[in-house]
């Protein structure tokens, strides 16, 4: 079955096409059939396939059009900047990082860097060797953006370039950012990086239309950070770090549904946090992170550096 053309908001349609469509429908209104598609298709001599779909016309009537008369649009971002800033309705994204499984393989980091064109020194996912005190057990602690519910970075941004969405994600609009780096000073989790230099990008990425949901292409003189991959979520897929981890360290999900998954296991979020004593980083600062951690207990592997890359 051929995919139906994407339904796109009017703002995204180039004005020229819109006028053309209006003209065609004007011509078509003279014909017995009220749809502009059939008339236009006849001019271009398109063979009907026989299969029809029902559409709502601009005048509010249901019209039936042959499928062959519908052309798929080329790939353009399906949502506007305003919609990106609003976030996905009805969702409250949440992440759980299971420290008892992390062996510092850095696959999450590699996948994230690859997907977002992050340079090595400026990882959005950082994996820290942590040890609370001299005689306590060391463990690996991956950090993403905490997507705080009371985000210090959003509070200090003078131009609304970093914002809190209704689905809980803290996003960055690199087209808005003035590069003052106040958010970097404000973030206690050191999660933000700055594009000091012109990002090294393949030409096709450079030509992409910027979206705050993919954070691509990264722009010089602006701040970047983990975005929780809402573009993947919209496609019904998991963030890159979650699917890349072979040990299932990262669980991602929706608090409203009370479900998180690491790709192979799907569990109830509240049960997981209760049974495994989940906690959040720097709770005392009052930032209310959306990323939870499960303590590094019962590890069946030693604490050693297993990543391929040498330590920095």
């Amino acid at each position: 079955m051929r995919p139906l053309p994407k339904i796109i908001p009017l703002g995204q349609i180039p004005r020229r096409n819109f006028i053309k469509g209006a003209l065609l429908s004007g011509i078509a209104s003279g014909c017995s059939s009220k749809d502009p598609f059939t008339a236009a298709a006849k001019e271009e001599a398109v063979q009907p396939s026989g299969e029809t779909v029902k559409l709502l016309s601009t005048t509010g009537e249901i019209i039936e059009v042959d499928k062959a008369y519908l052309k798929p649009l080329e790939e353009i971002p399906s949502i506007t900047n305003v919609a990106e800033r609003m976030g996905i309705d009805g969702k409250k994204f949440v992440m759980v990082i299971d420290l008892s499984r992390c062996r510092n393989l850095k696959r999450c980091q590699e996948a994230c860097n690859h997907a977002h064109f992050v340079s090595d020194a400026q990882n959005w996912i950082k994996i820290y060797p942590m040890q609370e005190a001299e005689h306590t057990a060391p463990y690996w602690q991956p950090t993403t953006c905490m997507h705080c519910d009371d985000p210090p970075c959003v509070k200090v941004c003078p131009v609304d370039a970093t914002f809190k969405r209704q689905d809980g994600i803290v996003g960055i609009d690199a087209d808005r950012c003035i590069g003052c780096r106040f958010c970097m000073a404000a973030c206690p989790y050191s999660t933000r990086v700055f594009n000091w230099d012109k990002p090294m990008l393949p030409p096709e990425v450079m030509e992409m239309q910027y979206s705050s949901e993919t954070s691509c292409p990264p722009k010089i003189g602006t701040v970047s950070k983990c975005d929780f991959c809402p573009d993947m979520v919209r496609k019904g897929e998991l963030p890159h770090c979650v699917s890349a981890c072979p040990n299932g360290v990262f669980f991602f999900g929706d608090l409203n549904e009370d479900v998180v998954t690491n790709g192979s296991e799907t569990v109830r979020f509240s049960d997981l946090i209760r049974d495994r004593s989940g906690y959040r980083l720097m709770e005392d600062l009052g930032t209310k992170p959306r990323v939870y951690y499960l303590p590094p207990v019962d590890r069946l592997f030693p604490f050693e550096n297993e990543s391929k890359t040498p330590e920095g």
Partner: peptide, 17 residues
């Protein structure tokens, strides 16, 4: 001078929070 995007200086007035 400290700003990464000095040409967006006007954003301070257009989008000020």
């Amino acid at each position: 001078v400290d700003m990464g995007r000095p040409e967006r200086f006007t954003h301070l007035f257009l989008y000020s929070r």
